[in-house]
Design a protein around this nucleic acid. Structure first.
Lengths: 272, 272
DNA sequence: GGTAAGCCTTGATCTGTATCAAAGGTCTGA
DNA sequence: TCAGACCTTTGATACAGATCAAGGCTTACC
């Protein structure tokens, strides 16, 4: 199948970055220096000798959209970074209720050093390329070189903050606020300036993005049903907070309005 | 006011541990070797020379039950560990809706190295003793000695797991399951064997604990109202899942039953 | 002993979201 | 071109939990 080209994520993985993977089926050949996530992933603080060492123990794997990467409880022989694409962490109850508990974007880390079975289901939402390290050599490197552990700590603290923001969304926000919050988060992370024909004055307030999620994935993210997700999206559209091109492309004419709908007191700082 | 004696937490801070603090108003005099959280806090992996170094930069602070420790947005000049008592992290929306996003028990770490304002409200639920380090010297030590950062990484990863479990509770569980989940978590962490008169055979399944929280705090933890919390506790009592001594002491005759009510597929392993 | 302030419980009613149901789009493959 | 699968939307109805309201219990203080 053709490789998924994510034209809406120019800052993260540009088209030319992706070509490296598309045109090199032998993925192992990409050197860390040329890696699109080099400066944001777990390797961000590594010196060039450390990078060499990582380079030797790494290998690439690809996962097709919709496919599981690991199941909760499975033995995990590797850890690694998402190079391109989206993946999700989900928890499931016996009766099938499921809750998404993590969202993995390019540069995010997968797996927990020191634990050998997965705690959550991980699955690919879009096609995903991962840079993997066998667990043992990676853990050895971690205890030798502090740069990896330092970066991992920073990243984990950021994830914890994100999880706590999300807890407020799950516990206290209405369905409409939940949808607005989700859109605000996505827009913050990967919006492109929207050409909405609103004129120069409003360009800075506008944004647009492709929704990588089905209604079901959004429902699992927000603790809602797909029907409620659908209704609230329709309502936001009717009220002019967003507009849609097709079912998956969202245009936000005024980010401040969207953030207001999300009920966040964290203000326009989001747009910086 | 007299120091709060937490007789239900023998494994964490024994009565005699507490006397150290009660009888020594000049708290600074306690040496790390005698510290009740020495082997579980951020200092757990430190060698004796590192401990000496920490000893020199630490100081103790106490907070009364109900008092704020820091407000979100405030400048935070210190980081530290909870030595005894309970504290909570909460987020608040403009209109007053609040969600608890973290629970701080003895040995838990407060503050984020590298950030200088608090992201959440932190307040003391019971009387709290904290072991504090001024931020700058602590950060300097962190970059010199890997043991602190290593331990902090472990602890942060554990907190992230707890936050994700909590997200499932908030997003997908019913009110009754939420209460049962909360009780199961508390019981797991600090239950004492209950003398419920059920006979030897059932002792291992039984547990009891003091609720340190008001109904309001539980509601903020679980994303419910106080009325719903109250009703669900009454219902669990009526159904024999728990019984109460006064309003705050909970007896669980059968932990398996409680865990079943919580809807967790994570099974009896919790009791180990 | 009386009263005020907190906290908790319980009842009545309302409402936001889930559930049940049907139908419209879009894409794929025969 | 059609059938089938999947995703999405929309309507009707049900229900869990919120909201509004009242009263009980405990503790503190005058």
């Amino acid at each position: 199948m053709p490789f998924y080209i994510d034209a809406d994520q120019p800052s993260v993985t540009s088209l030319s970055d992706m070509r490296i993977f598309m045109e090199a089926p032998e993925l192992k050949s990409i050197h860390c220096d040329e890696c699109p996530i080099r400066h944001r992933a777990v390797c961000a603080k590594c010196e060039s000798d450390e990078l060499e060492q990582l380079d030797r123990i790494k290998y690439y794997r690809t996962f097709e959209a919709g496919q599981p990467i690991v199941w909760a409880g499975d033995r995990m022989s590797f850890v690694g970074s998402v190079v391109s694409g989206y993946a999700t962490l989900t928890q499931t109850m016996e009766d099938g209720r499921t809750q998404m508990v993590g969202l993995l974007l390019p540069s995010d880390f997968v797996g927990r050093p020191g634990r050998d079975s997965a705690a959550y289901n991980i699955s690919a939402t879009t096609d995903v390329v991962m840079c993997c390290f066998r667990k043992k050599p990676f853990e050895d490197m971690m205890s030798d070189t502090p740069h990896i552990a330092q970066r991992l700590l920073e990243m984990t603290l950021d994830e914890l903050d994100a999880a706590r923001e999300w807890m407020l969304v799950l516990g206290r926000k209405t369905a409409r606020e939940k949808i607005a919050s989700l859109f605000a988060i996505i827009a913050r992370r990967e919006s492109v300036l929207a050409n909405t024909g609103l004129g120069v004055k409003n360009v800075a307030r506008a944004a647009s993005f492709d929704l990588k999620f089905t209604r079901e994935a959004m429902a699992d993210y927000l603790g809602l049903t797909i029907e409620t997700v659908s209704r609230q999206i329709s309502a936001l559209k009717k009220d002019g907070v967003i507009s849609l091109q097709g079912k998956r492309h969202v245009i936000v004419p005024d980010m401040y309005r969207l953030i207001d709908e999300a009920g966040d007191d964290s203000d326009g700082g989001l747009l910086v």
